[in-house]
Design a protein around this nucleic acid. Sequence first.
DNA 1: TATGAATGAGGCTTCATTCAT
DNA 2: TATGAATGAAGCCTCATTCAT
Lengths: 195, 195, 195, 195
Amino acid sequence: MERRTGNGTVPERLLATATRMFAERGYERTSVQEIVEAAGVTKGALYHYFGAKDDLLHEVYARVLRLQQERLDAVAGEDAPVADRVRRAAADVVVTTIENLDDAIIFFRSMHQLSPEKQQQVRAERRRYHERFRALVEEGQRAGVFSDATPADLVVDYHFGSVHHLSNWYRKDGRLTPQQVADHLADLLLRALRP
Amino acid sequence: MERRTGNGTVPERLLATATRMFAERGYERTSVQEIVEAAGVTKGALYHYFGAKDDLLHEVYARVLRLQQERLDAVAGEDAPVADRVRRAAADVVVTTIENLDDAIIFFRSMHQLSPEKQQQVRAERRRYHERFRALVEEGQRAGVFSDATPADLVVDYHFGSVHHLSNWYRKDGRLTPQQVADHLADLLLRALRP
Amino acid sequence: MERRTGNGTVPERLLATATRMFAERGYERTSVQEIVEAAGVTKGALYHYFGAKDDLLHEVYARVLRLQQERLDAVAGEDAPVADRVRRAAADVVVTTIENLDDAIIFFRSMHQLSPEKQQQVRAERRRYHERFRALVEEGQRAGVFSDATPADLVVDYHFGSVHHLSNWYRKDGRLTPQQVADHLADLLLRALRP
Amino acid sequence: MERRTGNGTVPERLLATATRMFAERGYERTSVQEIVEAAGVTKGALYHYFGAKDDLLHEVYARVLRLQQERLDAVAGEDAPVADRVRRAAADVVVTTIENLDDAIIFFRSMHQLSPEKQQQVRAERRRYHERFRALVEEGQRAGVFSDATPADLVVDYHFGSVHHLSNWYRKDGRLTPQQVADHLADLLLRALRP
DNA sequence: TATGAATGAGGCTTCATTCAT
DNA sequence: TATGAATGAAGCCTCATTCAT
């Protein structure tokens, strides 16, 4: 039976603590000892639930990827004009990224700390996400609602660059709400795609 | 007098080696021992020229920042319509980023490994660059050649996100040349800014 | 549970070994590597119990200070004429210093190797000891059993100089027993204090 | 020809700088690099004049020992009652110690940093000094002007303990002048020796 | 006389992981 | 399920000394 001493189960607490600390100081600068102390458990407990330190990191990636893929699949599958779906997908990924900014910071900074196999796996899932988004853009280009001056691949990378970059500049206490930022960035994308 | 064994002076060789290795495996996963072995010198020699491991990292940043600021200042100061200058600046930063992709990979991934003071310094210089670029966009907005639907700040972050992101997807052996990528990305920016 | 291989627990063995080696060769000339080898454990074990090399040194100081303060407090609080109490305190500190000569050697030679904070702390406790002893001398001066030709402060430093100096000349195999040395030194002090 | 760039010749400047730094931070915590920088010369220059770092330390010892032996020989050889000569010798060593407090700090703290041969040599010269002083005390004991309750050896160590200890408590800005301290300490010694 | 780049050995500390309990 | 003492490898850095110039 899982013990509960703070909020959530032990593995949940460990993952939440690790996420926060990895985002604050970086993966390599956060020791296992510090994580277990902050989570209020012992090393033995951590190794009971996670085989290695980088399993914690991998869990963060898995969580982010799962969430974003689900959101994209949902939006892409809606019954709406393609331009609307692209706009909503573009804005949605901004909002969820901001809402999980710690995850995003880790995501774009620590991937090379994963073991090669796990990196491979993460890259494959990211590609799947990219492909899905690209398909949406291409659908719009074929339909003539988007300019096809720029290859869809590049368009996707263009937009996702700005999403990654959020972790470098967005501040919770800034003057724009997550939704406002999302609307602006989606708007820039749509304007760039105007025929 | 500086000794030469191999190409360049010892500090040059150390910096070049470190740059390559930091880009390949990340700063934390590259040991000082590995750097000096690859550069063919001893640890003592490294510490004769660099006070600490993160001085090597700081040098990479200084080099990138100096180069990009110079290029931007040159382009921004030209005697040409503002839209042309923005397009050239936007494309130029893409080309120089691709030409120094190792630097870029390091730049966007390892800044938090710098000591707090060095981070401060780098952040200040980045801000200066950002401000210069933003001023250019605002100039275009005031002149009416660019839409002012989006705050100039956000526009700059939008574009620079895509520049940062280059280090995640651009491959030297891909099908687009650096100049082609640059033209596409600058074009996307300009299209997004159309009134 | 604490492991035992040899005499005492691991931290006890480490401290005993370090004390001996610091006294023999000095703190700076004793490496952590040598300590753990002599104690039959690994470096990791040492750092499991002591946060830094100078924690070992600090422990020596803490032990000496605690012991001497306890002895002084006990003697000073006795119900006996003040001259007797001073004589006993003066002799007692000589005996315990000789009985812990390694500690004493370290004490008077290595204090400046402690971190500034730990030095501060040690200094504060030494002062407390000094004050207690000085109060005793002043009591005798006020009572007229001691000459007040010399400030009590100086008297205390005079006597303690000879205690410190023991670590420079006393040899276990010399012709005087610890008690004989103690009696002589206490006698010198009391004779110097005769009105 | 010896170059002069600051005050004194290069070797003089080096020795003066090293003395100050050894006293302030300790021998081991002062690097050769720091000494040469503070003295305004280069490493090559230091090694031109001194064969090794610990030659600097040895010079400090040689200087102290030479000076004190000269003073003691002069006082002891005077034509005056033995009690007066002892009092003057006892006071004189206090004054010269305070006047060269840096030397004294080093002397009583760093001897074990010398090479074994140099330690041996220093010990031999100290013994010579000790013997001369002891002879003086014994002369007084035989003459009946001093009590012989305490062995002369112990009397000398008693007094010299207080001299060593000066480096632990004496402050230039304290309320007693060097001469006052010297008089008090010599007085304590003479009072202790009263028959 | 002096330079200062370079050496090479060694110093202290950190840390992910294991394992007997 | 968990503990936490212990391991062992590796990490960054310091420094006295040498030597070609």
